Simulated scan of single mutants.
Amino acid sequence: MHTMWKGTISFGLVNIPVKMHAATENKDIKLRQLHKECQSPIKYERTCPNCDREVKNDEIVKAYEYGKDKFVILDEEDLEALKKEQADKAVEIVDFVKLEEIDPIYFEKSYFLSPNEGGGKAYGLLRSALKDTSKIGIAKMIIRSKEQLAVIRVYENTLIVETIHYPDEVRQVKDVPNIPEESNTAKKELDTAKMLIEQLTTTFEPEKYNDDYRTALLELIEAKKNNEDVVIGENKPSTTDDNVTNLMDALEASLDKAKKNKPKPKPAKPKTTKSKKKVAK
């Protein structure tokens, strides 16, 4: 597994040398753009609209736009010095909290942590302490020139870092348009909705969820490669009948469908009673 970062995790006076590895990967299928006439890949060039010419990499500088067409130029040397100053700092756990206190909207990306040379004992100590206390650590760290707020927790016997958003990076819910202030749901509709939720409730098994679009796209690509006839499947029928016109009808139809599709529980095995042996007096 590729190491993308090396550093130390510290809490109190305990320092743990660690390596960081990406815990997830993007499985999206990337498609190229070609010129239809000759099927050559399209190139994208960096051009200056003012000079009307292509710009080379060594002619490009970074800047911050603080107003319309007003920029502050940032020298590469200043950025590198700032980056090094922050990167040299150890990742320090500043607080310990309960995982359920953090809303999922804050979570961003996951990374595995493995102990670096000489860090095995301290790594195991932190892992055991987090397990036994059911707590997670809140820390700050630098990843790709950005200071990240992060969570350090245990996942299947491995320490994992979850980068999380800062509060000012999460937009305010009051800015979401058209949210109804009060619910005027009828009791019968609410009771039926609760019954539907109960019928569809199950144990989370991530293995049973698949990316159907990616699978179909890969099959299409393979068929095209082999010059096979391609037949795109018809759309699946909707979950409710076309004549469902109101919310209550939709709920009842969905509930009926859920009851039909829900697997029947396995019959319990009959209990066997052991006969007691009579003890002769």
Rank of each mutant, 00 (worst) to 15 (best):
residue 278 K to D: 11
residue 126 L to E: 10
residue 272 T to G: 05
residue 43 K to M: 00
residue 213 Y to M: 07
residue 44 Y to E: 15
residue 125 L to G: 09
residue 58 D to G: 01
residue 125 L to R: 03
residue 178 N to Q: 12
residue 75 D to M: 10
residue 93 I to A: 03
residue 186 A to D: 11
residue 54 E to S: 08
residue 175 D to C: 06
residue 263 P to D: 09
residue 75 D to K: 08
residue 244 V to P: 01
residue 228 E to M: 14
residue 112 F to I: 04
residue 36 K to M: 13
residue 177 P to I: 08
residue 81 A to M: 13
residue 140 K to F: 14
residue 177 P to G: 02
residue 261 N to P: 02
residue 188 K to I: 13
residue 191 D to T: 07
residue 144 R to A: 12
residue 108 E to Q: 15
residue 263 P to N: 04
residue 158 T to Y: 03
residue 166 Y to M: 10
residue 148 Q to S: 01
residue 231 V to C: 04
residue 244 V to H: 00
residue 184 N to D: 09
residue 161 V to S: 06
residue 235 N to Q: 13
residue 164 I to A: 03
residue 162 E to I: 05
residue 39 Q to Y: 07
residue 183 S to N: 09
residue 205 E to A: 15
residue 126 L to A: 06
residue 59 E to C: 00
residue 12 G to I: 03
residue 207 E to P: 09
residue 206 P to K: 05
residue 248 M to I: 06
residue 138 I to P: 01
residue 52 D to S: 06
residue 228 E to W: 06
residue 205 E to D: 15
residue 123 Y to M: 10
residue 227 N to E: 14
residue 102 I to A: 06
residue 32 R to K: 15
residue 257 K to E: 05
residue 14 V to F: 08
residue 254 S to W: 04
residue 33 Q to R: 10
residue 178 N to P: 03
residue 144 R to N: 11
residue 257 K to G: 02
residue 249 D to T: 07
residue 10 S to V: 11
residue 229 D to Q: 13
residue 31 L to T: 13
residue 18 V to H: 03
residue 223 A to W: 11
residue 96 F to C: 03
residue 126 L to V: 03
residue 251 L to P: 02
residue 126 L to G: 02
residue 124 G to Y: 02
residue 201 T to A: 13
